[in-house]
Amino acid sequence: DWREIAKLAEEALKKQQPVTVNGQTFNDPNEIKKLLETAQKAI
């Protein structure tokens, strides 16, 4: 669910920690931002 992904990505950016989505881990803040943008577009 994109809403859940957006929430996870936002928290990861705030806490500056990696986030795992669908078994894929994102460590890079730039990648997390991209993930968040993608999720927000999909909602």
Rank of each mutant, 00 (worst) to 15 (best):
D1S: 15
D1N: 14
D1P: 08
W2G: 02
W2Y: 05
W2Q: 03
W2P: 05
W2F: 05
R3C: 14
R3V: 14
R3K: 14
E4P: 02
E4A: 08
E4H: 08
E4I: 10
E4R: 09
I5N: 01
I5P: 01
I5W: 05
I5Q: 02
I5H: 01
A6P: 00
A6H: 07
A6V: 14
K7S: 10
K7L: 11
K7W: 13
K7C: 08
L8S: 05
L8I: 11
L8V: 08
L8Y: 04
L8F: 04
A9H: 01
A9P: 00
A9K: 00
A9N: 00
E10L: 15
E10K: 09
E10F: 10
E10H: 06
E10A: 09
E10S: 09
E11V: 05
E11G: 05
E11P: 00
E11H: 07
E11Q: 10
A12Y: 02
A12C: 03
A12I: 00
A12E: 01
L13E: 01
L13P: 00
K14Q: 12
K14C: 10
K14Y: 14
K14N: 13
K14F: 12
K15T: 13
K15D: 07
Q16F: 12
Q16P: 05
Q16V: 08
Q16H: 14
Q16I: 07
Q16M: 13
Q16T: 06
Q16C: 10
Q17E: 09
Q17L: 12
Q17S: 12
Q17A: 09
Q17M: 13
Q17R: 11
Q17V: 12
P18L: 04
P18W: 06
P18G: 12
P18E: 06
P18Y: 04
P18K: 07
V19F: 10
V19E: 00
V19K: 00
V19T: 03
V19W: 02
T20V: 12
T20Y: 10
V21L: 12
V21P: 01
V21C: 04
V21N: 00
V21I: 15
N22L: 13
N22W: 13
N22P: 02
N22C: 12
N22F: 15
N22Q: 08
N22G: 09
N22R: 11
G23C: 05
G23F: 04
G23Q: 04
G23A: 04
G23T: 03
G23R: 04
G23W: 03
Q24W: 08
Q24V: 15
T25A: 06
T25I: 08
T25D: 04
T25P: 04
F26T: 04
F26E: 02
F26D: 00
F26P: 00
F26K: 01
N27Y: 15
N27M: 13
N27S: 15
N27R: 15
N27K: 14
D28F: 13
D28C: 09
D28Q: 06
D28V: 03
D28W: 15
P29L: 12
N30F: 14
N30C: 10
N30Y: 14
N30M: 11
N30G: 12
N30R: 15
N30I: 13
E31S: 09
E31W: 08
E31V: 09
E31M: 10
I32G: 00
I32H: 00
I32D: 00
I32Q: 02
I32M: 03
K33M: 12
K33N: 06
K33A: 13
K34A: 11
K34T: 11
K34F: 07
K34H: 11
K34S: 11
L35I: 09
L35Y: 01
L35Q: 01
L35V: 05
L35S: 00
L35N: 00
L35P: 00
L36R: 02
L36G: 02
L36I: 07
L36S: 02
L36T: 01
E37P: 00
E37A: 08
E37K: 06
E37I: 08
E37F: 05
E37R: 07
T38N: 10
T38Q: 14
T38G: 06
A39R: 01
A39L: 06
A39F: 03
A39V: 05
Q40W: 11
Q40G: 04
Q40H: 11
Q40K: 15
K41D: 07
K41Q: 11
K41P: 02
K41E: 10
K41I: 12
A42N: 13
A42W: 14
A42M: 15
A42V: 11
A42R: 10
A42F: 13
A42E: 12
I43S: 06
I43Y: 04
I43N: 05
I43C: 05
I43D: 04
I43F: 03
I43P: 04
